[in-house]
Simulated assay, not measured.
Amino acid sequence: MVDGGLPRMAARVLARLYTAESRSLTAAELVSALRVSPASVSKAIGYLEQVGMLHREPDPRRRLQHYVMADDVWQKAWQISSSTNANWAETAAEGVELFGAESPAGRRLSLMADFFRQLADDMSGGPGFAVLDDALTILAAYREAGRVVEVDRLAAVLDWPVDRVKTALEIAAAARLSAEQRAALAAAEE
């Protein structure tokens, strides 16, 4: 994980959570298992929370926080890497504007921007991946709620514009219809 770019302590915390018997650990348990200071664990947890790789859950019986690894931790890591590559592309493109496209630095930065833009697109499944990811988020929200939630309410909860929610719902509906059509075709072929 460290070779892949994760900070060393964050990698240790993530590895410990991943290999724990229970689905969560407290900060004290992490400190004890890793034999490090509470500050080290706190900093690592802060980083992992910021990038969405784990979250806190309160203990209903005691005043403790349990740290739980996200179910889709590796997908999150992939998305973070893709986003980082997109940021590199954007920064390089700004450099091209700053130095000029015909300057030696501008030409190098242009190649860098093209490379990282293509890498980010490849990793994210292409430019349309964000819309598909939004559709999956909507479906997960419905599953979590156990019912269909009004568009306005869903937009407020997700802190998204209503149009973004509507587009995601359309994509989810289209994917569902496609799956149903494929199932019908498969049944007809049998």
Rank of each mutant, 00 (worst) to 15 (best):
P127A: 07
S40K: 08
A168K: 01
P7T: 08
A15H: 14
L54N: 11
L54W: 12
L119N: 04
L177D: 12
E170W: 00
R12C: 00
A101L: 05
S40R: 10
G146T: 14
L119P: 01
L177Q: 15
F129T: 01
L17S: 03
A77M: 06
V2W: 04
S178P: 00
D134I: 01
R107F: 13
D134K: 02
A168N: 02
L64E: 01
M1R: 09
P104K: 12
R147W: 04
V96S: 09
E57M: 08
V157E: 15
A11K: 08
A105F: 14
L132P: 01
T19G: 05
S37D: 11
L54C: 15
Q50K: 11
V149M: 15
G95K: 02
F129S: 07
G100R: 09
K166R: 13
W78L: 11
A101S: 14
G146K: 13
D122G: 04
S42Y: 04
Q75S: 03
A130Q: 11
L98T: 14
S32E: 13
R147F: 04
D72K: 00
L6Q: 06
A141L: 07
F115H: 13
W88L: 15
P104I: 12
E150Y: 00
N87W: 05
A140E: 05
L119C: 05
V13M: 11
R12W: 03
S81A: 11
E21F: 03
P58L: 06
Q79R: 14
A156V: 03
V68E: 03
F99V: 07
V96L: 08
A10G: 07
A28I: 02
S81P: 00
E97R: 15
E190V: 13
L132W: 03
D59I: 13
D3K: 10
G46E: 11
T84N: 03
G125W: 05
N87F: 02
W160Y: 15
A70H: 13
G125R: 03
M112S: 12
E97I: 15
R143L: 11
L98E: 14
M9D: 10
A145I: 12
